[in-house]
Amino acid sequence: MRILVLMRQLPDLVEELEISSEGTDIDRELVKFVMNEFDDQALEEALLLKESSGAEVVVVALDEPDVDQALYTAIAKGADRAVKLTGVSNERWMSTHERAAILAPYVEESAADLVLTGVQAADDLDGQLAGVLAGLLGLPHAAVVVGVELKDSTVLVTQELGGGRSVDEEIDLPAVLGLQAARQAPRYAPISKIRQVTQAGGIEEVAAHTPPEASATAISLRRLYVPERSGHAEMLEGTPGEVAERIAEILRSRGLVKG
C-alpha cells in the first residue's frame, strides 16, 4: 500500500504581501514560503494510516521556494520518502490546473494506491487540485474529507457536507482525496529531528513532465489588486428586540429580504 501526499508551498501569510512591479503577481523576492496547512492535515492522516496499516507514505512537492524544509519536516514526522519534482519554474504563480497537469504523470507512474492532498489552499480556495488531478487520471475523488479508513481494495471516507451533516462512503482504490482535517491535529516534529533528517539528506529529485503550454482552461491574469478597504461597521445597540428590528430594516432597505 502506497500513499502519496501532495504538498504545496504558499507565501507565509503573516508576511505583508506586495504586488510586483509587473502587477500580475505578488513580489516573491522577500516572501517566505510555508507548507499549505491543509496539506499538513493530509500528511497527518497519511501518517495515521501508516501507523494503523503499515502503508508507505511518500510526500511529493514541486520544486517551490523553501520546499526542502517542508519535505524534511514531513520525513521527520514519519514519511518514508520525499520526492521533489524539478524543472518547473518556481518564480511565478502557478494555476491549480497547471499544477495538476504536472503532478498527474508522476502520480500515474508512482503506482500509488491512495493520493491525499489538502482540500484547498490560499491560492486554490475552490479546492480544485484533488478534483482536477482525479479527472486527469480518471480516478474517483472525494473532497472535504475528515476521516479515512483503508479496506482491502477500497477506502472508507467520511466527507463533510456542510450544515452539520457528513456522509460515509466507500470508494474504490486508487483514489484522490482532498483532506479538510485529519482525525487528530498534525503532530509536532522536534527541530533536532528535522535537523538530523536534513543532514542525512534523502530528498529524491525527479524531473517533472512539463505539461503542454497554456491549455484551453488556463487563466490569463491581467492585474492583481490589494483588496480595497470599503464600508464600515455599525454597532447595533438596544434590547435584543430592537436590534432584531434594526437588522430586519437594514436587510429590507438593501433589498436582501422581501416585505
Binding site: 529531528k193 543532514q199 542525512a200
Partner: peptide
C-alpha cells in the same frame, strides 16, 4: 545536535 544524533 549538529552531529546528527538520533534524538528520540
Amino acid at each position: 545536535s549538529a552531529e546528527g544524533k538520533v534524538v528520540g
